[in-house]
Amino acid sequence: MKLRLIMMAAVIGIAGFMLAGCGTDPHRIDPSSNQGLTTVDDINFKDWQIAGEKCVKTMLDSGVLKRNDGRKTVIMISTVKNSTSQHVNTRLLTDRIRLAVLRSGQAITTTAVSGKGAEDNASRQVRKLADDEMFNKKTVVKQGTAIAPEMSLAGEIVQQKTKSGRTSESYFFIHMTLTDLKTGLAVWEDNVEIAKQAKKPWLGW
């Protein structure tokens, strides 16, 4: 009886060691490569890259950012509504677009105003320094100097889940718009579709 228990413990121990050996050490991966996890229910970083690339390409190609007076268009980042069942940080998409827009030299983004208040409160805070005796009034930024945005970048991400037997599927639909704030008209729109599918094995998870 005792021998049997020892044998069982030994087998479990060996199996445990073998299973532990199946894992991999943490390692860095190249974000620009095709490495990285692909999961059905989430938008993975490669998906954000694909979506951002498509949006940037069509926006720059549309020519809507170009102004005839040579001035750069000022864009505010409004809200990208998350209508998925997952927690999604939409900055992963909007930051990619705003960086591309800035580097294009055709437009510039404002941090003084966004869909959820000011992205950087400093613009407002420094103007309050005019009442602070500590500061030289001449060096304090005056009221009425901030430039208001002319366009707004917004969007929505929608997810539809489908399951059939052991196969599950997620369909993400990302819709982005650039609105001319003077007229309220959408001057650019684009959709990105991401569809993923996975089949569960007969055994396991």
Binding site: P31, S32, S33, N34, K46, Q49, I50, G52, E53, V56, R96, L99, A100, R103
Partner: peptide, 9 residues
């Protein structure tokens, strides 16, 4: 350098 220098499928 561009923000989109990634391998795309």
């Amino acid at each position: 350098p561009t923000p989109s220098m990634n391998w795309l499928p």
